[in-house]
Nucleic acid binder design. Structure first.
Lengths: 181, 181
DNA sequence: GTCTATACACAGATAGAC
DNA sequence: GTCTATCTGTGTATAGAC
């Protein structure tokens, strides 16, 4: 399965650089030096391929954030995203397609959201326990809001690359700190 | 141009009820009782048609919110959106497609975001002036965050209709009120 | 203004040879 | 495992009749 991994890594680079327009099976196959049929040999369908790409990206991101979890790592993740517009586009576009309940990747996103939300909530609770955030905030709700905000910022940023996503994430943390009783 | 208006109104109803899958020129033409060519006669291209639909939706929403602007109207708008999943889907999906810089509707969204953001910022300032919100908050940033959060909530809500979007918008207002120095 | 018919483009899937 | 070739589906756009 080394080839599969190699394909995903290359695909990730290509999409990051060239955007969603290059995200057809054919284009990705070209970039990887395979024919369309050759690429599909490894994944079967487009949806499986794309889901694998996004999954791979998540793994990379988790690795990146593992050094220091917490407020800063989230800001850094957002900063990093601003450097790979193609991936943000792919994520946004594929998610909007998968919103249809019978889309093959619907469950993948559903689960991804669920897990990220839970992880974030746990992180907020950790910060409350350590006194970094007021303890009378609803951690679950904050996590949902933060996560949604980040996704929304990405959408808006695609239309206005001047928008400083990380700055707004930081400011949200600040507002939260100030919201203590 | 009465016919154009009639088409948009009907299209809006259909999409709201049946979702993005029904949002092809052909399906909309059917719903409106025209042939595909007949419908395109009025709009020329798919992008023009869809942009017109979304524009129409915005007008309707603005009318709805005109009664009482402010915090509550925003919450109500979100509550209303939860009742028209198809429109949320159309908005999300078409926006993600238009993110490509050379998409025919790219500018429409860019401008839409710019205007909504400015309107929201003005509203936040108004609330600060009247003492409803702490005056030491950055109105512009709050507007961007709020707007992004609402968009992100919609994305997540499409995968988890249990998610109470309005509740989280309300909670954000509350956090903001508590964030005064 | 509206229809029927058709052209065109694209992208994904699949068959079968090597 | 990988390629070439081809099929199929889908969706938009257009030509031309009524």
């Amino acid at each position: 399965m080394a080839k599969r991994e190699e394909i995903l890594t290359t695909a990730l680079e290509i999409v990051a650089r060239d955007g969603y327009s290059k995200a057809t099976v054919r284009e990705l196959a070209d970039a990887v030096g395979l024919s369309q049929a050759g690429l599909l040999h490894y994944f079967g369908t487009k949806e499986v391929l794309f889901t694998a790409i996004l999954q791979r990206r998540d793994e990379v991101d988790v690795d990146r954030a593992l050094g220091d979890p917490g407020e800063d790592s989230l800001v850094e993740l957002v900063e990093h995203n601003a450097e790979v517009p193609g991936l943000v586009q792919l994520y946004s576009r594929f998610a909007s397609e998968a919103a249809e309940k019978d889309h093959p990747s619907h469950e993948f996103f559903r689960e991804r959201y669920r897990l990220s939300r839970a992880g974030l909530a746990a992180e907020v609770e950790r910060m409350q326990a350590s006194g970094e955030l007021p303890s009378d905030l609803d951690a679950e709700r904050i996590a949902i809001m933060m996560f949604a905000m980040i996704d929304g910022l990405q959408t808006h940023w695609m239309f206005d690359p001047e928008l400083d996503m990380a700055q707004h994430v930081s400011y949200f943390w600040e507002v939260l700190r100030r919201a203590g009783k």
